[in-house]
Amino acid sequence: MSDQTIGLLVMAYGTPERPDQIEAYYTHIRHGRKPSEPALQNLIARYRTIGGVSPLAEITRAQGERLTEKLNRTVTGKKFKLYLGMKHTAPFIEDAVSQMAGDGVKEAIGLILAPHYSDYSVRLYMDRAQAAAQAYDGLKIHMIDDWYDEPSFIAFWARQIRKELDKIGDLSKTAVIFSAHSLPVKIIQNGDPYPGQVKETAQLIADALHLKRFAVGWQSAGRTGEPWIGPDVRELTRQFYHESGCTAFVYCPIGFIADHLEVLYDNDQVCRQLTEELGAAYYRPAMPNADPQFIACLATIVARRAVQLDREDKAPARNQATIHSA
């Protein structure tokens, strides 16, 4: 009996791959409203600062491809087929679902490349994918809600941060600042789990490293006129510097899993500039990107979901997934 083909719908935010795509990307983020010329030029300037465009698109493809390869080496009874779907750039989530249906896939696992769940962000990916799937009879997409506390994810970050701490040596005046993308304060009032999940990830990593001086901050807040979750990472930096005399800062953007604008600009440019103004040292661990250890983490998460599907569906004709190490 041949292995069952199962779609792997990997979803991410998306990014322009060329400078001439930036305006369309920005317009899509703004729900079809074109940005003002000053706002557009500001975004173009940010991209120019990090090399013209973000490497996110290339990294996302590499993550999806290597994850699929890993799964097909380590999970028997299934053959995973990759479909990439972006929130704001082609191929859009709907394009990926359409392609999946055209290929005859009847069952898929959906993975959003963001570890923490929020109705304001991750839920939107899920809703778009499920809405698109409803147009195709028999296509089922089984979503993975979050993976913020996955042990191998925590271990990955702990290893990366340890490398930076080892460079510093004397940690008595060192602060570790964990961060994630800020969201509007209203999500807290609605009971959204996002802030709590981010804080739990940070605490798990801090516990693994036995950190004594750390905090959770927020970055990359939108300019919408409404309050966004704080404190901002820059505010935390100043606080640690003035109140604790810290002269070395390790920035850990645990809400992200790839090098992109928010990391390469908001951290490596804005936060670095602040530390230089304070006369302090700037450090940032390498992002997960397509690191084999991180890909193995994602494979564990997806493979576990595949096993759960087999337990949920007892039909005798279905092949049972088995996970092997590789």
Rank of each mutant, 00 (worst) to 15 (best):
I6N: 01
V10K: 01
Y13C: 00
Q21L: 07
Q21A: 11
K34T: 15
E37A: 08
R48G: 15
I50Y: 05
G52L: 09
A62C: 02
Q63M: 10
G64Q: 13
E65N: 06
R66K: 14
L67D: 14
K78F: 15
K79D: 00
K87Q: 08
A90F: 06
A101D: 15
K106G: 10
G110S: 13
L111T: 03
S118E: 00
R128W: 02
D145P: 05
W147A: 11
D149C: 09
D149Q: 11
E150L: 03
F156K: 00
D170Y: 01
S172E: 14
K173D: 10
V176W: 07
V176T: 11
S182F: 07
Q189V: 08
P195T: 02
L204G: 06
I205G: 08
D207I: 01
H210P: 01
K212V: 03
A215Y: 06
G217F: 02
Q219H: 05
G225W: 02
E226H: 00
R234D: 05
E235I: 15
F240T: 01
H242V: 13
H242F: 12
H242K: 10
E243P: 00
G245Q: 07
Y251F: 15
I254Y: 10
L264P: 07
Q269S: 10
C271R: 03
E276M: 05
G279Q: 09
P285L: 08
A290N: 14
D291K: 01
Q293S: 14
I295L: 09
V302H: 06
A306Q: 11
L309F: 01
P316A: 13
H324L: 14
S325Q: 12
